[in-house]
Computed example of a mutant assay.
Amino acid sequence: MTQAPYILWLDDASAPGNALLGGKFASLAHSTAAGLAVPPGFGVTTAAYRHFMAATGLAEEAARIRARAPHMVLNEIKGETVKLVEGIKTAPLSTELEAQIRESYAALEKRTGVSETPVAVRSSGESEDLEGASFAGQYETYLWICGVDAVIRHIRACWAGMFGDAVLSYRVDGANAVAAGDFGMCVGIQQMVQARAAGVMFTLNPLNGDRSKIVMEACWGLGEGVVKGDITPAQFTVDKVTLEILDRKTVAQTETYCFDAAAGEVALMPMEGERCQTPCLSDEQVLELAKLAKQIERQRGAPQDIEWAVSERGEVRVLQVRPETVWSRRETKSLVDAEQSPVNRVLARFAGVKVAAKAAQGESR
């Protein structure tokens, strides 16, 4: 019997839709195969995760915690997982697995031509494929990780994230989806985009489900500002048929997420210069993104939620594609604050704009 691979590249012929890559990275492999501009990278597969858990003797403890999770409250989950999480972060990798990770990162350095290539280390769980579930914001992503030793530390952190309280308390239609099965975790290693601007876009209106519209939110710098909700983004609404910009709302941006060389990590930093008062996207870029959104929706055959970035050289890159979940899937519940969901934050911001507009109309009458 052939052993399942521990490493699978996004542009490998077998990668699109491959369950070994989890939901997020399998989707990016599909986008790569479809000819979209996806940053290069490889996945440390769910087979690697399961090999590590079995070889270190941690699989049994993981199964025990999963069995107990549906019967525990949030504080109990935190206490119950301490030993397991510590084991995941410190137990030795097998010689074979560590060698393959190191060789693959070296290959990525060669592909990009950059020593210690900055990468995003991205969780991509099998449970992201559950019907009726959206794990956006539940699993971990680490940005601007440089050097293979740091990459390995953050791979472990993503594995450990499978047993965080936010994940183990996640509910789908009243059931604990993660605890219901032995779900694995792929970890994607993907070249960072030196983002001039970034954001999210939906191939429908997230307020009312109108499929004739494309709605996007954008900010200067890395897209963390939009996803986390701590930067007020620019908002654009485009007619999907005519590609006319129907509405635009821009605000002065005084902070941006970028790599802080002094701290060695991505941080929210003050913005200076002309960009503070300048829209992060030109009309031409908005329409280029809208065309891309239409293309992706045609390829996928359903409304999509897309994360993207525009590099300092003006190149558009696709960072994530997933089915739109607010209108097309059932209501989900979590013991963790629902406002942590990136999609819910976008909805709240658009709702806030509508409420403010109505109030302003009322005052003018």
Results as ranks from 00 to 15, higher is better:
Gly41Met: 09
Ala62Gly: 08
Glu86Asp: 15
Lys83Pro: 07
Ala34Trp: 10
Phe25Thr: 09
Ala47Leu: 08
Lys83Trp: 07
Ala67Pro: 07
Gly57Lys: 11
Lys89Arg: 14
Ala63Ile: 02
Thr56Arg: 07
Arg68Cys: 07
Ser31Tyr: 02
Pro16Leu: 07
Leu20Thr: 03
Val73Trp: 11
Gly57Cys: 01
Ala29Gln: 05
Ala55Tyr: 06
Arg68Ala: 12
Ala13Lys: 15
Leu21Thr: 11
Ala48Ile: 02
His30Ser: 03
Glu80Phe: 00
His51Cys: 11
Ala48Tyr: 09
His51Ala: 15
His71Leu: 09
Val44Thr: 11
Leu36Asp: 13
Leu20Trp: 00
Leu21Cys: 15
Val73Pro: 01
Pro16Val: 12
Lys83Arg: 15
Ser14Asn: 04
Phe52Gln: 03
Lys78Gly: 14
Ala29Asn: 11
Arg50Cys: 00
Pro39Asp: 09
Ala59Arg: 09
Leu21Gln: 10
Ala55Gly: 06
Thr32Pro: 02
Leu28Ala: 03
Glu61Gln: 14
Arg50Phe: 00
Asn75Cys: 01
Ile65Phe: 06
Ala37Arg: 14
His51Lys: 14
Asn75Ser: 05
His30Leu: 03
Thr56Gln: 10
Lys24Gln: 01
His71Val: 00
Lys78Leu: 11
Gly79Asp: 08
Ala47Lys: 03
Lys89Leu: 13
Thr32Ile: 02
Glu80Ala: 03
Ser31Gly: 06
Ala26Cys: 04
Thr45Gln: 05
Thr81Gln: 14
Ser27His: 05
Ala54Arg: 10
Glu86Ala: 15
Thr56Asn: 06
Ala19Met: 06
Phe52Thr: 01
Ile88Gly: 11
Thr45Pro: 06
Ala19Thr: 08
Leu20Ser: 08
His71Ala: 11
Gly57Asn: 01
Pro70Leu: 15
Pro40Asn: 13
Ala59Leu: 09
Glu80His: 00
Thr56Leu: 03
Leu58Arg: 14
His51Ser: 14
